[in-house]
Computed example of a mutant assay.
Amino acid sequence: MEFISPMLLEQVDKPFSDGRFIFEPKIDGHRLILSRSNSETRLFTRHNNDVTAKYPELIMDGPDIVLDGELAVMDPDTGIPDFELTMARFQSKRSRLPISYVVFDILRHDGVDLRDLPLLERKAVLDRVVSDSPTMSKIACIDGHGEDLWDAIVARNMEGVVAKWKDGRYHTGKRTDDFVKIINYTYADVHIAGYRKGDFGWIAHVPREGGGLRPVGVIELGVPPTHKQAFYGVVKPLITGEDRNFVYVQPQIKARVKFRNWTKSGMLRSPVFVDFIFRV
C-alpha cells in the first residue's frame, strides 16, 4: 500500500487574480492521502500515520488510486468546515461525527503515476474517475479570479484560498510557489502577561468582560530575534512571580497578533506575532 508524501504550499500575504492559476477554497481540516490497491484502502496523514480505522466511511471498492485531499467535519448550522469538530472526530475512538473528504488532486490511477502531468490534466483524470458521494467530493475551483473567491471566503469567515498554477506538477514532499495559500487571518491586540522558561512562548491575555484580563493562549510564532531581545531587555522590572514553567509579568507590554480563529473556549488558534503596539 503506497503512501505519497503530500506537496506543501508556500504562503503569500495578499489575494490576487491571474489567468494562469485556478483558485480553490482552503479547507480547514487535516490532510489525508487515500491509497487504494488490490481492493484494499488505506488512509494516511501527511506524516504517514495510518488512520484507516478512524474513517471506515471512506473504505470502498473502486480502481487502484492515490488521492490527496482534506478531511473535515462540517458545522451543521453553516456547512463550513469546523476544525474543532474535525479534531474531535480524529481524536476520539467512538465519535461518528459525519466527515467530508474533499479531494483536490489525484497522484496515481490504475498503476500510472500522474504527478508529472500538469495540474489541469490531473484534474481531468480526477473528474473522470472519482464520483461525489455523501462522504467524498471533489473541490470546487474558479479560473483566474482569485480576488472574487477571496471576497466570498472572507464574507463566509472561511480559512482562506489556495492558488494553483494550471501547469504545475505535483512535487512530492516539497514546498513550491506553484501552489500558494492565502490565509484569512483574524487580528487581535493582546497583553503579554508572562513568558515560558523553556521553549519560547509569550502568554497572551485579553480584556475580560466585566473587567480584568483573561488568558487566551501562548504566542510562539513570528517573533523576530530583535523583538525578543527588546522584550527581555525591559521585562525584568515587570516580573511578579514564577512557577516551574513560566515567569509572570505585569501585562503592560501589548502586541498585535494574527490567528486562524477564536476557539469555542475563547482561545486564540495558532497565534502569530505581528508587532508590538507600543515598541519597547
Score class of each variant (00 low, 15 high):
F179C: 08
I142C: 07
G212M: 09
N157L: 07
W202D: 03
V103D: 09
E40F: 01
F259V: 13
E40P: 01
I253R: 03
I139A: 09
I203A: 04
M267N: 12
V130W: 06
G266W: 14
R108T: 01
M158P: 02
K258M: 15
L71D: 11
S17A: 01
L149H: 15
N245F: 01
I139S: 13
E84F: 11
K228C: 10
G168I: 03
G111T: 08
Q229D: 10
R196V: 04
R196Q: 05
V129F: 00
R115F: 05
G146E: 14
T240M: 04
K197M: 11
F104D: 12
D167F: 02
Q252S: 12
P6A: 04
D143C: 07
Y195K: 06
P56K: 14
S95W: 06
Y248S: 05
M267D: 09
A53G: 06
T41F: 00
Q91N: 15
A255I: 10
E2Y: 02
I192T: 06
P56W: 10
R244M: 08
G144K: 10
T240K: 09
P237S: 02
M136P: 12
K123G: 01
T78F: 07
L8Q: 07
K14L: 08
P271Y: 12
F231V: 13
D167R: 14
T172V: 15
R36K: 10
V12P: 08
I192R: 08
W165Q: 14
R256Y: 00
M60K: 05
K264V: 11
D77R: 15
V73T: 13
F83W: 14
S133L: 08
L107R: 02
R156G: 08
F231N: 05
V103K: 04
Y195R: 01
I183T: 15
V257H: 08
F179S: 11
P224L: 15
V190C: 07
P215M: 00
K236E: 13
K26I: 06
N184T: 09
Q91M: 11
R122P: 03
S37C: 00
D189W: 00
E147V: 15
T78N: 13
I27D: 09
D132L: 03
K174D: 02
V257K: 13
F21H: 10
V51Y: 05
P25D: 10
I99A: 02
A230F: 05
V129I: 13
I99M: 06
Q252H: 14
V257D: 02
A124H: 08
P76H: 09
Y248M: 04
